[in-house]
């Protein structure tokens, strides 16, 4: 076991992936709770497809991928939130529209510039090799900002998530918090999709939150449990991917699925005992 860990840590690219992956898991676990509870689960999926389109265009033009992707995804997050809060446009439809459209653009750009190759597969399904030292620095900054914001505004985030109208009525500026969550989601997704892949990154956001909601009975409990589950599943997934040469993103999401099944079972047993 110790030998396995030492061998793993001897590769700098694996250490980089581990650091930023851990931080991204933590961020997405935190964000996932308000997103799932506000019925915004699909926003993560939609945004990751936008991220795919943006990465494709950036690499075709030879620009720094994250500097193109982050503003694009942030703009899309802002737009999606506006659309879903506007009752005249169907939120589900808007997300599907934007996500498939970006995917299509991304595929066309990639096949026109470099041709269908491993690059497209890396974008779609993620690669543990893809984290540069710059990406690591970015994910450290993003995670630090997120943690500070979540601790400072924990009460407000709960109030706005639980009952937006009431929160507005007592003078909480709910719009600011919604925008903040959308922007942080955009940031987390863009950083995380390099490892996890744009098709799988949304699993990192929704699974830990949904799993802990099976078990926990308070918001604080869900938050803490969600972070724990997310970290454990990430390490388990990466370890499995390294040991058996499996794709990283897919292994992590499979670990998350197993955790969901396990926690659902425990939750059901606990409920039966209480009843």
């Amino acid at each position: 076991m110790i030998e396995f860990i030492r061998e793993f840590l001897s590769y700098p690219f694996l250490v980089r992936a581990l650091i930023s992956g851990t931080l991204v898991s933590l961020c997405s676990a935190l964000l996932g709770v308000p997103l799932v509870l506000k019925r915004y689960s699909m926003i993560g999926d939609g945004l990751s497809h936008v991220g795919f389109g943006a990465l494709a265009i950036a690499s075709a033009l030879n620009w720094a991928p994250l500097y193109v992707a982050i503003p694009t995804v942030a703009a899309a997050a802002f737009l999606l939130l506006r659309l879903t809060s506007d009752s005249r446009i169907n939120g589900d439809g808007a997300i599907a529209l934007i996500s498939t459209c970006s995917l299509a653009v991304g595929v066309i750009v990639i096949s026109a510039s470099t041709g269908m190759n491993t690059e497209i597969s890396n974008y779609l399904f993620g690669s543990i090799l893809s984290m540069s030292p710059g990406d690591v620095r970015l994910s450290v900054c993003a995670a630090a900002v997120m943690l500070v914001l979540f601790i400072l505004f924990y009460g407000r985030i709960f109030a706005v998530t639980f009952d937006e109208t009431f929160a507005r009525a007592i003078g909480v500026r709910a719009g600011v918090y919604n925008t903040l969550i959308a922007l942080l989601t955009a940031l987390t997704i863009t950083v995380g999709m390099r490892i996890m892949g744009s098709l799988l990154i949304s699993g990192l956001i929704i699974f830990p939150a949904l799993s802990s909601m099976r078990l926990c009975r308070s918001f604080r409990g869900v938050m803490i449990c969600s972070c724990t589950v997310s970290l454990i599943c990430f390490f388990a997934g990466v370890a499995a991917s390294y040991a058996f040469a499996l794709p990283t993103g897919a292994s992590v999401v499979c670990a998350d699925t197993a955790a969901f099944a396990l926690l659902s079972l425990i939750g059901a047993l606990l409920r039966r005992n209480r009843a």
């Binding site: 709960f158 109030a159 639980f162 009431f166 929160a167 918001f219």
Partner: peptide
Amino acid sequence: FPAGVTEVVLS
């Protein structure tokens, strides 16, 4: 919504 009673009242 998973929330404790005290959490809701405090909000």
